[in-house]
C-alpha cells in the first residue's frame, strides 16, 4: 500500500522537467539611441490624431506597463474593447494581443496607432508630423543616420524602446539563478503553483505568453461575452473564449486582471482561475502563499526609463 503510494509519488515527480520558468536575461542587447528615440515617441501625444494620447497613456510603464482602467480610453473618448495588456516584457510573448493576431511588436504597434478608437492615425500622417519636428530630425539622424524619417523607422524606434522594456532581476529570477532563497511561504506558493497546474500554462521566460488557452476549460466562463478572442482569428467555434495566456511577470502591479478586467485583486483572480480552469477551490492560505510567490515575479524597472 505504502509502496504503491510511494511509487505513484515518485512517478509524478520524476516527470517534472527542469524548472519551467526561465529568468529574464540581464544583458539583453539594446540600441540605446534607437531606444531613447522610441521612448520619446512612446511618450509623445503627437502620435494621436487630436494630440490627446500617447502609447504611454494606456501602457503605464511606471506602473506595470498596462492600463489600470477596465478598457482604455482612446481618440475622442472612445473605449477599447478589451483590457490593455502590459508592454513590459512584451518582447518575450510568442504572439501579440489577447488573441495573438500578430507575431511581432512592429505589427502590434501599427494596431493602436491606426485604430480609430485609439490613436486614430495613418502612417502618412504620423510620418508628416514626426518629420516636422526638429527634435526628431536630430534624433533620427543620430539613431539611423538619416533625416528622412519613414513610418517604418518610427515603428522600428518604438519597437527598439519596447525591446528595452524588460524587468530583470525579479526576486524569483534571482532564486532561479541560485542567488537567493525564497521565504518559506513564497517557496510553498511556488510549489502550489506547480502542483495545482498553474505552471502548465504559465511557464517559460514570461510565465505565460507562450500558448493559447481557453478561459474556463473546466467550468465554462461567461459564454455570452463578445471579446475579440482567438475565434476572431481562427473563425473556429472551439476557440471562443480562447486567449493568449498572459504573462504573470509584474502581475502584482497590473490589476485589474483578465481580458475583461473582472478581477480587481490577485486573490479574486486566483479564485476565478482555480474554479474555471483548474476545477479546484483554493484555501485562503493557499491563495496567500501563491500571491506571495506571484509577487516575487516583479522585477527591476527597465533601465531605459532612467536614461534621458
Amino acid at each position: 500500500m505504502i509502496k504503491l503510494l510511494f511509487l505513484s509519488y515518485v512517478f509524478v515527480f520524476t516527470l517534472f522537467a527542469d524548472e519551467p520558468i526561465v529568468p529574464i536575461p540581464l544583458d539583453e542587447p539594446i540600441d540605446i539611441p534607437k531606444a531613447k528615440l522610441g521612448k520619446e515617441l512612446f511618450f509623445d501625444t503627437l502620435l494621436s490624431r487630436d494630440n490627446s494620447i500617447a502609447c504611454v497613456s494606456c501602457h503605464d510603464i511606471y506602473n506595470g506597463g498596462a492600463d489600470n482602467r477596465v478598457v482604455s480610453i482612446g481618440f475622442n473618448g472612445a473605449k477599447g474593447n478589451i483590457h490593455a495588456l502590459t508592454v513590459l516584457n512584451a518582447r518575450y510573448n510568442f504572439k501579440q494581443f489577447w488573441n495573438g493576431r500578430v507575431n511581432t511588436l512592429v505589427e502590434q504597434a501599427t494596431g493602436p496607432l491606426s485604430d480609430p478608437t485609439e490613436h486614430n492615425m495613418d502612417p502618412r500622417k504620423i510620418q508628416e508630423r514626426v518629420n516636422l519636428s526638429k527634435k526628431y530630425k536630430k534624433m533620427f539622424k543620430e539613431a539611423y543616420g538619416t533625416y528622412t524619417i519613414t513610418y517604418e523607422l518610427i515603428l522600428d524606434a518604438i519597437v527598439a524602446f519596447e525591446n528595452a522594456l524588460t524587468t530583470p532581476n525579479a526576486k524569483f529570477d534571482k532564486y532561479l539563478r541560485g542567488e537567493i532563497k525564497l521565504t518559506q511561504d513564497e517557496q510553498e506558493g511556488y510549489t502550489l503553483f506547480k502542483q495545482y497546474g498553474c505552471i502548465t500554462c504559465h511557464n517559460g521566460i514570461n510565465v505565460g505568453g507562450n500558448s493559447f488557452q481557453k478561459m474556463g476549460t473546466f467550468v465554462e466562463y461567461n459564454a455570452t461575452a463578445t471579446f475579440p478572442d482567438r475565434s476572431d482569428v481562427t473563425h473556429n467555434k472551439e476557440d471562443i473564449n480562447v486567449f493568449k495566456v498572459p504573462t504573470l511577470r509584474n502581475i502584482a502591479k497590473t490589476a485589474p486582471y483578465f481580458h475583461d478586467a473582472s478581477a480587481q485583486t490577485l486573490k479574486e483572480a486566483l479564485t476565478i482561475m482555480s474554479k474555471h480552469n483548474l476545477g479546484i477551490e483554493l484555501s485562503s492560505q493557499e491563495s496567500d502563499k501563491i500571491i506571495l510567490f506571484l509577487e516575487t515575479l516583479s522585477g527591476d524597472m527597465p533601465k531605459i526609463l532612467d536614461t534621458f
Binding site: 517534472f16 510568442f94 504572439k95
Partner: peptide
Amino acid sequence: QNAIYIYHNHDAIAQKQQ
C-alpha cells in the same frame, strides 16, 4: 516531451513554430 512532462516550458515550442 511536452506530452510526457507535466511541467514543460512552452517557449521552445512557440519559438520553433516561429
